[in-house]
């Protein structure tokens, strides 16, 4: 695993959150692994979850199965990032 690959994936995940949820660049850049997502971002409702997952699939070239979408996936920015890393880098 190259470090730059992990950084690319992180950049893509931040860009998808910004683009799909309509968040500002500054707001998304300030996200840390501990930043809570689902339930804490009013922009992230169930319709937005669907768009977010599909856009991640398109940009990362991955497929996200139903059973992978549980409460933990979108709990925090860290959990979403870890999921994306596991899907792309392993």
């Amino acid at each position: 695993m190259e470090r730059s690959d992990a950084a690319d994936v992180e950049r893509t995940v931040r860009a998808v959150l910004r683009d799909v949820l309509g968040l500002s660049e500054e707001r998304v850049e300030a996200f840390t692994e501990a930043t809570p997502l689902f339930g804490s971002l009013p922009e992230l409702d169930s319709m937005a979850v669907a768009g977010l997952l599909t856009e991640l699939e398109d940009r990362l070239g991955i497929v996200i199965e139903d059973d992978e979408v549980d409460g933990e996936l979108l709990e925090s920015f860290g959990s979403l990032l870890e999921f994306a890393w596991n899907k792309t880098l392993i």
């Binding site: 910004r18 683009d19 799909v20 949820l21 309509g22 922009e43 319709m47 937005a48 977010l52 599909t54």
Partner: peptide
């Protein structure tokens, strides 16, 4: 540009 078709709120 942003994929506005994915936005839950129209952008």
């Amino acid at each position: 540009g942003p994929p506005l078709w994915r936005r839950a709120e129209p952008g």
